[in-house]
């Protein structure tokens, strides 16, 4: 059991406005954790800080034991909410790209998963449907043998059948040494697979708890609790 994410008094302000205030989070290995919160709650800011795309204003953040940098990036697999891939590349080219930069990338696994979807390696990303492009992005991330997977809205904008596929892929890829952090709005689809949930609002962590414990204590599903907690 190792700590894969540790935030201590993490604060990030843009100009004078704080997007994250004194955030304290510890994520242990072997968990699937949901990061839930309304728009503008600081989820994206937290995710960018984890990935080294932003620097903290104060406080500290440690990812897989390293401050965000080259060493942490080797161990983090990030799926942003919008496609960041060069569409002129073919599937094979993007797989080779990932192989080149990530030592932990498993190309056979990637090709296997894509074959099951009927996506040929020669296809250009441009030619794929939106749903298939999202699946390819997920496959690339899941084919990495990372310690921390950060998925930003992996099932938003995707049809229900594709959501099932994505959820199955996440489960199939489960590694007790690693942790998956899923940031999403679509709670009811995803709550069954979560170990823990972090509720975040206005830059503060409102709650971090085991999901079954929440159900036990509140007699409600996560979806219902979310609606209550974040009621306007």
């Amino acid at each position: 059991m190792s700590v894969l994410l540790r935030c201590e008094n993490l604060t990030k302000s843009y100009g004078g406005t704080p997007a994250l205030k004194d955030v304290n989070i510890t994520l242990e290995s072997g968990k699937i954790v949901g990061l839930l919160g309304p728009n503008g709650s600081g989820k994206t800011t937290l995710i960018k800080l984890i990935n080294g795309l932003l620097t903290p204003t104060s406080g500290s953040i440690e990812v897989a034991g390293f401050a965000p940098g080259v060493e942490s990036k080797k161990r983090v697999a990030y799926l942003p909410d919008n496609s960041y891939l060069n569409t002129w590349m073919s599937v094979k080219q993007i797989v080779n790209y990932f192989c080149d930069f990530y030592e932990d990338f498993r190309p056979e696994l990637a090709y296997q998963m894509m074959a099951k979807l009927g996506i040929s390696p020669e296809v250009r990303l441009k030619a794929l449907s939106k749903g298939n492009k999202e699946k390819v992005c997920l496959i690339l991330i899941m084919s990495r043998n990372a310690l921390l997977y950060v998925l930003d809205e992996p099932i938003a904008g995707v049809d229900p059948a594709a959501r099932d596929y994505i959820i199955s892929t996440i489960l199939n890829n489960y590694n007790p040494e690693a942790t998956v952090l899923i940031s999403t709005h679509l709670i009811s689809d995803i709550e069954k697979i979560l170990d823990e949930v972090i509720f975040i609002n206005n830059g503060n962590v409102v709650l971090q708890k085991n999901v079954d414990d929440i159900r036990e204590e509140n007699g409600k599903s996560l979806d219902e609790l979310f609606r209550e907690v974040f009621r306007w």
């Binding site: 795309l53 080259v70 990036k73 990030y78 496609s83 960041y84 891939l85 930069f101």
Partner: peptide, 13 residues
Amino acid sequence: SYEGYLSFTLPVT
């Protein structure tokens, strides 16, 4: 641009 999300998450300084 959006490619920055890939470039800056590569293990590269």
